[in-house]
Design a protein around this nucleic acid. Sequence first.
DNA 1: GCGACAG
DNA 2: ATCTTGTCGC
Length: 221
Amino acid sequence: MKIHQRHPWPLTVEEAIAIQNQLQPEVITEDQLGEVQYVAGVDVGFENDYAISRAAVAVLSFPDLQLVEQAIARRPTTFPYVPGFLSFREVPVVIDALEQVSTIPDLILCDGQGIAHPRRFGLACHLGVLTNMPTIGVAKSLLIGKHEELPVEKGSWQPLRYKGGIVGAVLRSRTGVRPLYVSPGHRISLDTAIDYTLRCITKYRLPETTRWADKLASNRI
DNA sequence: GCGACAG
DNA sequence: ATCTTGTCGC
């Protein structure tokens, strides 16, 4: 698939904030996705002491979750890790990898936040707006917001609140494990995001999509 | 001003 | 994120 460049990649936090504020209004948190036949997971790893970023895309069939295509891309790392600006470090190389894929996914699960972000524009939102594809943010830890304690049973969840609004959900993907932080990225509602996240989980804490992308991005296959 | 802080 | 085998705990 081809992805058109909407903006040059910034090198400073100041420029990054401007881009976040400019693109945020384009985020859609209502369901705008068709029948899901393919789900993709994306993740980024590093080489040479972080000098090189390596992205992996794993496309799985849905709902059977079988790997049907994969892609790897590498490019020099140009942005440091700064909480709140992860997309500027990871999205460029993720797009490189997505451009190599011929099986266009109907939904992408990202390793990071969606609108559960200080400016409601996390990695999943950024990737979604630039590709115009439905995306979900599925993070392993909390960036912003607060929530009530949640039951230990698989499937239970609690709203994640931030500045008076609900920006995501804290979701128990498996009984007794640490929760996942799910938030809409683009073209999907929170309820639907929770539903698809659970439908991508089999016997582990993380969705099969991100497990595959993780494995591919970290060399050790 | 003091902490918190996706990967 | 990354370096890494066995091991503690349910």
